[in-house]
Design a protein around this nucleic acid. Sequence first.
DNA 1: CGTAACATTGAAGTGGCTCAAGGGGAGTGG
DNA 2: CCACTCCCCTTGAGCCACTTCAATGTTACG
Lengths: 258, 258
Amino acid sequence: MYGKSPAAECPARSANAAELTGNQLSCCNCGLHRICLPANLPAAEVRTVQEAVRRGRALPAGASLVRAGRRMQALYFVRSGSAKDYSLTSGGEERVHAFHLPGDAIGLEAFAERVHPREVVALEPLCYCMIPVRRLEQLMDGLPGLRQEIMRLLSQAINDAHRLHDSLGRTGARERLADFLLNLSRRLERRNLSPTQFRLTMSRRDIAHHLGLTLETVSRMLTGFKRQGWIEVRQRYIKLVKPEALLALAGVSDAKGD
Amino acid sequence: MYGKSPAAECPARSANAAELTGNQLSCCNCGLHRICLPANLPAAEVRTVQEAVRRGRALPAGASLVRAGRRMQALYFVRSGSAKDYSLTSGGEERVHAFHLPGDAIGLEAFAERVHPREVVALEPLCYCMIPVRRLEQLMDGLPGLRQEIMRLLSQAINDAHRLHDSLGRTGARERLADFLLNLSRRLERRNLSPTQFRLTMSRRDIAHHLGLTLETVSRMLTGFKRQGWIEVRQRYIKLVKPEALLALAGVSDAKGD
DNA sequence: CGTAACATTGAAGTGGCTCAAGGGGAGTGG
DNA sequence: CCACTCCCCTTGAGCCACTTCAATGTTACG
């Protein structure tokens, strides 16, 4: 975890079955309601939508939330914890497409073929909500606000992907990593977590495979930043000491990145 | 142009104003109806939708179809010609995110903020159709098929972007270029154009900025392929002689890429 | 015919990859 | 509680692919 999450408590020992699937699930009471799906939904629609929301079983680290190639059953939302979204190259290498944080939607890419194109695994114990697609489709046909919001999420996902393309485009390893750290920082900030001090939930290898680098290079660049006094690193703990320096490196990226 | 387009004729001298904005525009009669928006729409909805479709004025090569930062007015569809979708880095370099072919939707990324994040310019004389967003929103609330199809396009755009990420991930210049050529080939094939012989409408520089390379490298790789007897190149004319060889290079990419 | 944009080719430099070895932490079993 | 092990991370040395810089060739268009 990146620190104390604003999300409702979601211990791995979890609640009992009744709570897991019951309708008493309330988006309004959820700590993520300003970040998650309901954030941009008309209040009236939130009430209807939250009745369709189901809570998934807590996943241990390493477990798959969605399997590549599996038929889309629902749209998922991270409640607590984090996950990585990756595929395997023909050479067996991982290509990490995204890291998901609390409030993030998972499975948007599946609307096209109704099949999840990639695997999504928990990087740490993970809790999530879900809306069955069938129900979601029904709801969208009646709730313009929901329809619009889902489209917004889809569109945002396109922008996020292009943002990544921007980063991998032609910049060096240093620039990519700086951009990655800042982007992560921004996303944490929006979740009311510290933007300057956090714990990486992913390995250097994951970061490398996300940025199109090797883990050695990622490691070297991190210690490089440290030597420059721009960050502090100890294991997976990161502290951004001079974000301005990183920002200068990454290029003034005004992207939202979420 | 990539050759004879299956699209309805769309000469640059164009039709008169009445034709340009008239309602007699028919998607059913359009040569792209199996590729463009109506392809996956219920027949009943096509009729309604096509009444909302407007034809844009023909653009000369180099003209902008959408300007970066401008408010989203409509969703566009390429009718004939091609376009590049790019942004500028802080260093003033172009980052080419996509090349649009006939039938492609343009502007999907703008649903998030209602503003076009990037510039889209014609690479050659370009004709297009458009659906005003306001009208599109109205229609989507009444036509489930349209709603679903637009969502499919959005979702597909996410997948396309991730496909690109896959390509730029960590493979070498040769692999990237092979992948690019094959992807283009596939897209042309779907448009009933020759998948093995075509004319690139973009410069080496554009390709380079799309793949995160320099134009020199692109040029070298192309002549490399030529020397191997895998392709024929003369200026912007390309002929794929041994697509299998390129495929082996790119890795067996089963992606759809459109 | 002249110019400008595009493209090819060469030579030299360099950043990140590869290969390789060593150091921690966290978890496990004794 | 300690020892062992596994995985993750760090660091180093050498190499190669792509970039950079530079010059020449080609095509299109006024």
